[in-house]
Design a protein around this nucleic acid. Sequence first.
RNA 1: GCGAUCGUAGCUCAGUUGGUUAGAGCGCCGGUUUGUGGUACCGGAGGUCGGGGGUUCGAACCCCCUCGAUCGCCCCA
Length: 416
Amino acid sequence: MTIQTPQAIRGTQDIFGPDAEAFGFVVETFERVRRLYRFRRVEMPVFEKTAVFSRSLGETTDVVSKEMYSFDDRGGESLTLRPEFTAGLARAYLTDGWQQYAPVKLATHGPVFRYERPQKGRYRQFHQIDAEVIGAAEPQADVELLVMADQIIKELGIADGVTLQLNTLGDAASREAWRHALIGYFRDHTASLSEDSQDRLERNPLRILDSKDPRDKPFTADAPRIDDFLTAEAQDFFAKVTAGLDAAGVEWTRSPALVRGLDYYRHTAFEFVTDRLGAQGTVLGGGRYDGLIEALGGPHTPAVGWAAGIERLAMLVGDRAEPVLDVVVVAESADREIEAQALVARLRRAGAIAELVASGSLRKRFDRAKKLNPASIVSLDQRDGNKTQNFRPLRPEVAGMELAGKVFAAFYADMQ
RNA sequence: GCGAUCGUAGCUCAGUUGGUUAGAGCGCCGGUUUGUGGUACCGGAGGUCGGGGGUUCGAACCCCCUCGAUCGCCCCA
């Protein structure tokens, strides 16, 4: 009788080898850079009461009803696996009294969950790095976040082909005026729009602006622009953001079609976009969400943040080799296997990256060691009753080789 | 939720118009050779051809269903 091997959940992934190295490189780079900007590390729960997300997302149609991983716990309470970090951080800001630290700069990373159809660069469990500034109303906070994001992308070595697209949604008054103008404009052309966009006109008119359908393109090009509806304050805010970016040497392009569907987004909206990832080109995105914390029942609290998918960044980073082995210890005789274990332990304690080959066919052990492509090989043999031990340098350019040689010499000096 | 493409060994893939016992390379295991030596030679393990049903004398190959993967649409906090 055979049992069926369980399969992985759709949209989950097991990350291994060079992919995992690239993943780790992204996280390490993020951690290093966020310290330079004094963003404080936070660890957050993976799940929250469903209300944390459903309120923050404003009960938006598809997002809450279809795209979240929600379930009832044993007490009958609805819980949800976090689809993003922002809402949970806002909740913690309120429930943990983080107001005392405001303005507070926060950084975190980990898995997030969205019930979506998997495709290139899109999974149901994926991973994000995340940075937020809560309690800061000034455009300097937006600038600091963007400069940090820019530095991370550059230090990952993936800036080529990535552009920062920037827009402003204005304050609440600007945004509402623009929205009304857009609805009026598209309503006049309803019949000529794609079916999808006719549908969007009722549900989410701003989204018509980034429709991929060629039938919509002529109309989106001539659609009303936010610039004509910005209040003086909103204009001033955006001008300070762009001036700050220019001063810091961060390149950006204006993207008037870049929108956010949710009402609590104000002012700055931005995305770092690449042309190298097919349909999923956004690599890092965020904006200012001054209305969110009120939506969770808190006091008016300005805030701004961004998140980036680690897998997408890792795809741009490409394969990363695992660290080079400093030394392989090979026991070519069964009588030397214990000794080989002692030596490899000593090498590792001394800080050498070391592997042991002391099993399988005696004759093939050395060949197996060579295939590991180490910087050096230590061979322990015993022929005609005579013990030999040999340190064989192979790749002098590897820094750890010399260390391995010294530890080898010291080990046998001690045995005398 | 919709659409397109694809599922043959651990991995990458052959498999001719349907025709004997389904193959190769790599990897793994054992052996020969060599004996400071990875690239040679021999052998072995490993496959219900994703699963189920149908057509046929006969199906990896044709048809239907199903599961899974990939890419795109919708959505994108």
